[in-house]
Amino acid sequence: MSSECAGDRENQWTKIITPERAWFDIDLGALWRYRYLVRLFVLRDLVATYKQTILGPAWFFISPLITAVVFTFVFGTIAAIPTDGMPPFLFYLCGTVCWGQFSRCLVTTSSVFVDNSHIFGKVSFPRLAIPVATVISSGAKFLVQLVILLGFMIYFRSKGSPVAPNWWAPAVLFLGLQAGIIGMAAGILIASVTTKYRDLMFFVQFGVQLWMYATPVVYPLSQVPERYGWFFLLNPMVAVVESFRLALLGTGGVGPLQMGMSVAFTILLLLAGLGSFNKTENTFMDRI
């Protein structure tokens, strides 16, 4: 793409910058051309986070393990919430691994403009590269945690627990992807809004926590009274977490209506996120 080919195509411009950008004028081709950059961002996320820490990448699975232990104690031992007959630790670990993928993606991408304003202000590249890289690097952590989870499943099964992984098990990869996409979609939607209302950023951590209690992470859906079912129908993460457990442990699960709603909401949320992100990335430098 240099001197020779430019000469004979007098009126062929490679890029036209216009004042307004349509909501869904998203240049996925550019994102693909920058796939190497995405890869490096993933690498940066993974390598840089745990450099100079003693335990290093072990943190990838230490935090879900500790969380699961605490949940086991608080919700299992003290509150004695039933876990569909599963060992509480395994039940909570399962929920935490799946939920962690979602919340990491959401929290990290929700501050993408603010965190990267020093880069965004100086170089132009497809901004979506960073949220996408976040989902991928978070997915890598998810995979590591999945391996640990499988280890515990084997252990508990050998101890005689009714752990029943089934033919749905490979679907956990798709569920992980879906959790990541829901997280990213919500994250970039928040990121777009927070370029104007910075205050909402303080709500993110808190909001994710609330969202977790609205999702069957520390309790099974089967314990939820029937009359609140409609509320859980609206939350796309419910189907993800429940199906995740169904695939690995053989308990829980949702009906086809809930699954369909979840997928539909995921797509809607993704479109809303991409649209507003695309609108915002055009001029956010003027506002930040």
Partner: peptide, 14 residues
């Protein structure tokens, strides 16, 4: 391309 113009257009080759 760091920010968009309010009016007008910019054409680029390369």
């Amino acid at each position: 391309g760091l920010t968009a113009p309010t009016r007008g257009r910019i054409f680029l080759r390369g």
